[in-house]
């Protein structure tokens, strides 16, 4: 069992063949920065907005996620249709996801946590950035949850 990577494929694979320098990686930090600003300014990081979404008292979050999916889907369609390449001239690679029961069990468990904390992993980082210091505890707990999943993975139904 030298390298047990089979079955442990990363869910956000980095398909770039080029090894990127620190400087090159900074561009992702800049994209992330704009993303974080949007998260806060559109109040997606707000615990109240998540409560409204699940209490069905506001359209806001449905509008955000729905619009994002439509824009993302059109973009992916165009990239595939016109075979648009990356800025370094590589073919954009997509990889189909495999269904397993984890998407159901894990999805429900994440949904519980989402409603409680009012945050998915992205907003956790943005909330800490806004100065909500106690959210560091939420983040550490989320890291612990990820670790425990990794530890129990073989015993869980998939």
């Amino acid at each position: 069992m030298a390298n047990q990577n089979e079955g442990f494929v990363c869910e956000t694979p980095n398909h770039s063949g080029n090894k990127e320098s620190i400087l090159s990686n900074l561009k992702y930090a800049i994209v992330g920065m704009f993303f974080g600003i949007v998260f806060v300014k559109a109040e997606i990081v707000s615990w109240f907005r998540i409560q409204e979404m699940f209490q069905l008292t506001s359209f806001h979050m449905y509008g955000v996620i729905g619009t994002a999916v439509v824009v993302g889907a059109i973009s992916v369609f165009l990239i595939k249709k016109f075979n648009i390449q990356t800025i370094s001239g590589e073919k954009v690679r997509f990889h189909p996801k495999q269904f397993h029961k984890g998407q159901i069990y894990g999805g429900l468990i994440f949904g519980f946590g989402w409603a409680m904390t009012g945050a998915c992993p992205g907003p956790l980082f943005a909330q800490i950035g806004t100065g909500a210091a106690v959210v560091v505890v939420t983040l550490l707990s989320a890291i612990a949850g990820t670790w425990v999943y990794g530890f129990l993975r073989d015993k869980l139904p998939h």
Binding site: I65, G113, C120
Partner: peptide, 27 residues
């Protein structure tokens, strides 16, 4: 704070992604 955070981390990994990886990128 603590249990909620734990469920977020455990659940997303078990599901293989969160709102960004599944709901936005995957969809």
């Amino acid at each position: 704070i603590v249990l909620g955070g734990f469920l977020v981390g455990f659940g997303t990994r078990y599901a293989g992604g969160c709102t960004s990886g599944h709901a936005i990128m995957g969809l």
